[in-house]
Every structure is written in C-alpha cells, then in structure tokens.
Design a protein around this nucleic acid. Structure first.
Lengths: 97, 97
DNA sequence: GGTGATATTCCGTTGGTGTGTCTAATAGAG
DNA sequence: CTCTATTAGACACACCAACGGAATATCACC
C-alpha cells in the first residue's frame, strides 16, 4: 500500500502517506506511527524506496520517500500476488472451491 | 479460512483442514502445523469451535472440530470484513482511489 | 508560548515459522 | 507371525517479525 501510494502520488513523507491511505479508504487503512515508520525503513533497507530530507510546502523539514526502479518492479509483483491470493480467498469464502 | 472449511465440510480434524486448504488453493494456502494447531486452540478458546476426540475413517484417533453458532456468526462477520477490505485494497492497487 | 506537523524510538503483545517429539495404526520384509 | 518403517495426527517450544500505542523531540507558525 505504501509502494502504491508513492507510485500514484510521487515522493511523499510518512505523515502524508498515512493521511492519504486513511483518507482514500474511508478510515479503513489507518497506519499508526509505530507501524509506518519501521515499515518505511524496511522498504528503504530493501532498496525499494529512497529517502531524502526536504522542505514541505508548509516549510517544514520532512523525509520524502521515492520509489526506486526495484520498488516499481516489487509493486508489480505484489499486485499480481495480491490478485491471485484475493481470488482464491474470495472463491473459498463463497464456497466455490 | 478454517471457519469456512468447517462450514463447507462439517466437522474435520486439523490435518484434514490443512490438506483441504492446500488442495483447493493449488498450494497457495499451506498452513504449517505450528500455525494451524495454535490457531485451532485460539478459535476454540474464543468459543467459535468445539473439539471432540473421535476415530477417523482410517481408524485413528483425531480431534474433530465443529463450528459453533458463535463460529457461524463470526464467519459471516469475517466474510463481510474481507469483502470490504478487499474492495478497498483492490481499488487502491488499481489506482482508482 | 502554545499548537500542530513530522519523525523517531521504545516496549509489550500477538502470532507465525520451523522443527522436534509423541502415539497409534498400518504396510511390508523376512 | 514378528519386527520394523512409515504414515497420520497432535502438540510443544524457541525464535523472530510485525503491530499497537504511547512517549518524546524538533521546528515553524500565529
């Protein structure tokens, strides 16, 4: 979800990612800080994001994360994996399998 | 997934639940034993399942778990929750929101 | 100087992973 | 017929990953 948000919006800082995800999901995807920031660090560690300090439009320092090429590839893979798994679970819950 | 399996098939023992889930998902849902058995105990603890020792058709002792009424209600709730969440994530990954 | 935006860190809890072990039943070798 | 190997089935345990919640730090702005 983080990768997808950055893919849609371009580079964003953590606070904005959380706000965006909460907003577009009507509150269903509320990342709390203790979940989001370690996740961002793991993603950067894996080379899927790159973070840079910069100044926001309201003139505050914030760490902006951008997708790397590997991050875009990973996002595509995750999308596929999600689609496969969601289809299976959906069918299972419908009793179709 | 465990609740749904018991709902479809009636009372089953853990080994059969795992085999069934692995089979209907083409291997995508492989519960390993250290995941499944604690999960069954938690579900029983919460009153969603009831377990009884019985003899299988190949004459071995096994613990058969059956859905309780509360288990059926929980399954319905989980199905709804899944549908809502899956729709949101699907739309998110498509960039539709 | 208080408030809000943004980041970081800590710690407790939950739950999965992997592996090992126990028991009973059956199949197969001799 | 007896001994052994294998399988089905359940469970225990130690380790690890990730989440939740909250505290804290910094800085800009009104």
């Amino acid at each position: 979800m983080v990768l997808q948000t950055l893919n849609s919006l371009g580079p964003q800082h953590g606070y904005a990612i959380a706000a965006r995800l909460g907003q577009v999901s009507g509150g269903a995807l509320q990342l709390n800080m203790g979940t989001l920031y370690p996740a961002l660090m793991r993603l950067e560690q894996r080379g899927l994001l790159r973070g840079n300090w910069a100044i926001t439009d309201n003139n505050r320092r914030a760490r902006f994360y951008a997708l790397t090429a590997a991050g875009r590839r990973e996002l595509a893979k995750e999308r596929q994996a999600w689609d496969r798994m969601a289809a299976i679970i959906h069918a299972l819950l419908r009793g179709e399998i």
